[in-house]
Simulated assay, not measured.
Amino acid sequence: MRGLWQIKREGAMRYGVVRALAGGVVMLGVSGLLGACGALGGDSGQVCTDTKKAFQQYVTQVRSVPAAEPAQWGQATQRLATRLDGLAKKTDDGALKKALQDEAGRLRSAAASVHAGDAAQLSAVLDGTPSRIGKACD
């Protein structure tokens, strides 16, 4: 049977992962995306620009959330997923629409994990975001 100290230690390790995200992994994960967005013309260009803004706002939000508040991280991640779904509806570009919808799904799944204090999935999602969204915005 696990002792109380083991449970506390496991919780502290989860929050440590969240703190690592707050310390810069989030910014590194989205930095490639921010450079690529906006390269397309028409509605796709605007959607990519709006996607860039959505991620910038997300980074600002999560940097202000204490590491000991994983529920707030989950909520912010869920809001970003909802915003990406909305942006997907605004474009006629099939590849961009699919990329945004897929990313929203990944973020929703990660939001559930981070809400429980495990940020590993969120970190993995954000690490791949620049290539997935950036590729669609090229």
Rank of each mutant, 00 (worst) to 15 (best):
R2E: 00
G3C: 07
G3L: 09
L4P: 03
L4Q: 11
W5G: 03
Q6Y: 06
I7N: 05
I7L: 14
I7G: 06
R9E: 10
G11T: 00
R14A: 06
R14G: 08
R14I: 02
Y15L: 12
G16C: 08
G16M: 04
V18L: 15
V18Q: 05
V18A: 13
R19G: 06
R19K: 15
G24E: 04
V26N: 07
L28D: 14
G29R: 02
G32T: 09
L33M: 00
L34M: 12
A36S: 13
G38S: 08
L40M: 14
G41H: 06
D43V: 00
G45R: 13
G45Y: 12
G45L: 08
C48N: 07
D50V: 09
T51N: 03
T51P: 01
K52I: 10
K53M: 15
Q57M: 09
Q61K: 13
V62C: 07
R63L: 12
R63N: 13
A67F: 06
A68P: 05
A68N: 11
E69Y: 00
P70A: 02
P70W: 02
Q72H: 11
W73N: 01
G74Q: 04
G74N: 04
A76V: 00
T77G: 07
A81M: 10
R83Y: 04
L84C: 04
D85R: 15
D85T: 11
L87F: 02
A88P: 06
A88T: 06
A88S: 11
K89Q: 13
K89C: 01
K89G: 09
K90F: 00
T91H: 03
T91L: 04
D92Y: 07
D92K: 15
D92M: 01
A95Q: 15
K97Y: 02
A99M: 09
Q101A: 13
E103D: 12
R106K: 11
L107F: 00
L107Q: 03
R108S: 01
R108H: 10
S109E: 14
A111D: 01
A111E: 07
A112N: 10
V114H: 05
H115K: 14
A116K: 15
G117I: 02
G117T: 03
A119V: 14
Q121L: 15
L122I: 10
L122Q: 03
A124S: 10
V125K: 05
L126M: 08
L126I: 05
D127G: 15
R132N: 11
I133S: 03
I133H: 03
G134D: 11
C137S: 07
C137R: 05
C137K: 07
